[in-house]
Amino acid sequence: MPDQDMTQTPGRRARDRAMAILLVGIALLMPPVAQVFLVDDHILGLPIPVLYIFVVWGALILGAVMISGPLKESEAGGSGAGGNGTPDPQNRPTGD
């Protein structure tokens, strides 16, 4: 059986984008970039290092939300390789 998702463009593109997010995330959250934001000042009442880390974190989550759409499409074809693959109607967003 030919490759079901890897040859499909959305899956591969999602993978490449995820890779990009991963690399950007590592670059931003690790030294030396993170050290740039190690300043003793406050923005909106929050210390800059704390604000920086949580903002990057939030941005990473947003990025993941954006690429999870095509990913889900590509996975719809690839799942059910052996399980009781009744498709779930939709993904309910969480309350909080």
């Binding site: 993941a64 390789a81 498709p87 779930d88």
Partner: peptide, 19 residues
């Protein structure tokens, strides 16, 4: 149960940790 659940988990789990 289903592979595509990972697609949701890819952002929902980090969001949980964030919370």
């Amino acid at each position: 149960v289903e592979e595509r659940h990972l697609a949701t988990a890819s952002w929902l789990f980090p969001l949980y940790l964030f919370g």
